[in-house]
């Protein structure tokens, strides 16, 4: 069976946006909010993956909003999978393709397998299957976690990746208790990187940095073996801000040092863009108050809450040997610290 002729986008992406392929494989007509950055992540992902791609998606905004009422914006083959099963669906799809190719049922060619999950589906429920997927080096797959910091589809409940103190349906702010969300956000890409030496590529990026995001997705797809990319996407519904600020907030989270642009290719950790300049001390971080004060979910914060948030971010940058990535500030070989 011959593969149908399809144009494959130029795989070499560089920092010039004007050479981006114009072809969209995730098109208009999705039922997302005004200013939805997760939809933008799907668009970037499909654009760089190209037509020879299979996508599976777990339950969440990007499932419900994109495939309801007998219509879809996807031009790629897409299948829904259960909330916690992004990892297992990716392994299964990849293994099935491998078996079909071995038996000669389909031509032996490169087919990208992407499973996406949200912060609830991947960071909370699907962590076990993500872990299993990162262990198996026989299969080529990419898991993309779009992190909008809550269970946004079901009207904003707190997830393990909701930032400290944010208002959600589960953690309202009251008169007696101002802060009811006491958990600090978990860092899934670092968690997977630290525990899975078999994973080939781990990356953290942001929807505000489209070129960085596309480069990372493309790098992951070009690798053999399991890879993982996480994106940080502002959600106008749950974060409670004017949708036109979406892009600006994503950029601001990086400028404040809350989101860190990093990747780890075969054990080599690298920082990108603004985060790299911050690590090298060439750029000062913006105060987190700029970021927090623009969002309704932090409207109840008193000055001391902002100071606490800032102190945690400062600690992450000043005390950790790998700033913003892994909390290791002391080793048997002596004290660490990013500034030496």
């Amino acid at each position: 069976m011959a593969a149908p002729e399809l144009t494959v986008p130029d795989l070499e992406i560089n920092r010039r946006i004007t050479i981006l392929p114009l072809q969209e494989y995730y098109t208009s007509g999705h039922r997302t909010c005004q200013g939805c950055e997760s939809a933008l992540v799907m668009r970037y992902m499909a654009k760089v993956a190209g037509p020879r791609t299979l996508v599976t998606g777990t339950t969440g905004c990007m499932y419900v909003a994109n495939t309801s009422y007998n219509s879809t914006p996807w031009s790629l083959p897409w299948a829904h999978t259960q909330l916690g099963s992004s990892g297992s669906s990716a392994i299964g799809t990849s293994a099935a393709l491998k078996a079909l190719m071995r038996k000669g049922k389909i031509p032996d060619e490169r087919i990208n397998v992407i499973a996406f999950c949200s912060d609830g589906g991947g960071g909370d429920m699907g962590l076990a299957t993500l872990s299993a997927a990162m262990q198996d080096t026989r299969y080529n797959l990419l898991i993309l976690l779009y992190d909008n910091e809550s269970y946004a589809n079901t009207d904003i409940q707190a997830s393990g990746m909701t930032p400290w103190g944010a208002v959600t349906a589960f953690t309202p702010s009251g008169k007696r208790q101002r802060i009811t969300h006491h958990r600090w956000k978990k860092n899934v890409p670092a968690l997977l990187m630290a525990g899975h030496p078999t994973g080939r590529y781990f990356a953290n990026t942001s929807s505000g940095f489209g070129m960085d995001l596309m480069e990372k997705v493309r790098t992951a797809l070009d690798m053999d073996g399991p890879t993982f990319v996480q994106t940080h996407d502002p959600c106008p519904k749950g974060w409670d801000y004017d949708p036109r600020m979406s892009h600006e907030l994503a950029v601001m989270a990086v400028e404040c040092g809350i989101t860190v642009l990093w990747d780890c290719l075969e054990g080599e950790l690298r920082y990108q863009g603004i985060s790299r300049q911050q690590v090298e001390g060439k750029l000062r971080r913006r105060p987190v108050a700029d970021y927090l004060r623009r969002q309704g979910r932090f409207a109840h914060f008193a000055d001391e809450d902002i100071d606490f948030f800032q102190s945690r971010i400062d600690e992450m940058w000043e005390d950790w040997i790998l700033p913003g990535v892994l909390r290791v500030n002391q080793t048997p070989f002596g004290p660490g610290g990013s500034r030496g």
Binding site: Y25, S28, G29, T67, N70, P73
Partner: peptide, 30 residues
């Protein structure tokens, strides 16, 4: 609205042809 007998088996929806947009949902009233 399509009745259940008109829907494809296994809740399969045809994909949007490359270069086109979803014909069933326009967003302009948003």
């Amino acid at each position: 609205m399509p009745g259940w007998t008109q829907m494809r088996e296994g809740l399969v929806i045809p994909a949007v042809p490359v270069g086109e947009t979803n014909p069933l949902f326009k967003k302009y009233t948003t």
